[in-house]
C-alpha cells in the first residue's frame, strides 16, 4: 500500500503485544495517516480489525505474504487539512445522488472487495485503493469520474494517485458509503 506514514515491525511477538504496540505506534501519527503493522501472530487477523473498530480507527486491509501479515490502519479523528487534499474536487453524497439521478455517471468505489460486496452504490465499479495505479487504464481519462470509499480518506488518496498520472477529471464523493442514504446494490 502507498502512503504509509509509519511501519511497525511486531514480527515474532505473541498476543497481546501486537495490539499493545499498534496502540502505541498509532499515537505517534496524525489523524488520517496510515499505519502499517507487520506481524506473524495469526490471532491478529481477527484482533486488529476489532481493535481498530473499538478505538475509532479505520481498518483498511490485510495483506498476507507467506507467514508475514501486514495490516493497514488509518488513524481516526479530526483530519488536519493539508494542501493536497484542498486541491481535490469534492462533492457530498447528496450532490452526487442528484447528479446520478440525471443520467449515467462513472463511479469508482475504492474500498476492499468485501466491503464492496456488502453493499455499494448502483453502477459502481470496484477498484480497491491498492490497485488503482496498476488498473488506472480501467478508469476513463475523459469525462467526470466520481471516486468513493467509506469515509472519504481512501477516495482522496485514489484521487492523489490518479492525479500524479495526469488525471484531472476526478471528483471525490464524501463522506461516501459510511454515511450513505442512497440506493444500494450488493
Amino acid at each position: 500500500m502507498e502512503n504509509v506514514a509509519k511501519t511497525l515491525d511486531a514480527k515474532g511477538l505473541a498476543c497481546p503485544m501486537p495490539v499493545v504496540r499498534t496502540k502505541k505506534a498509532i499515537e505517534e501519527l496524525s489523524a488520517g495517516e496510515i499505519l502499517e503493522v507487520v506481524v506473524t501472530d495469526r490471532g491478529s487477523i481477527a484482533d486488529i480489525p476489532v481493535w481498530a473498530k473499538n478505538t475509532g480507527h479505520e481498518y483498511l486491509e490485510l495483506v498476507k505474504e507467506g507467514d508475514v501479515l501486514k495490516h493497514y490502519v488509518r488513524k481516526g479523528g479530526e483530519q488536519a487539512p493539508d494542501k493536497e487534499e484542498s486541491k481535490l474536487k469534492t462533492i457530498t453524497n447528496e450532490e452526487y445522488l442528484e447528479i446520478a439521478d440525471k443520467g449515467p455517471v462513472t463511479l469508482i468505489d475504492v474500498r476492499e472487495p468485501d466491503e464492496f460486496a456488502a453493499g455499494h452504490a448502483p453502477g459502481a465499479k470496484n477498484i480497491p485503493l491498492g490497485q488503482v495505479e496498476q488498473r488506472a487504464d480501467e478508469i476513463p481519462a475523459e469525462g467526470d469520474v466520481y471516486i468513493m470509499c467509506r469515509s472519504g480518506g481512501r477516495a482522496g488518496m485514489a484521487c492523489d494517485t490518479l492525479g500524479t498520472l495526469g488525471r484531472k477529471n476526478l471528483i471525490r464523493v464524501a463522506p461516501g458509503m459510511g454515511d450513505w442514504d442512497g440506493p444500494v446494490e450488493s
Partner: peptide, 11 residues
C-alpha cells in the same frame, strides 16, 4: 495480564 493489557490498548 493479557486481557488487561489488550483491554487497556483498546482504550
Amino acid at each position: 495480564f493479557n486481557i488487561a493489557t489488550a483491554a487497556a490498548a483498546t482504550d
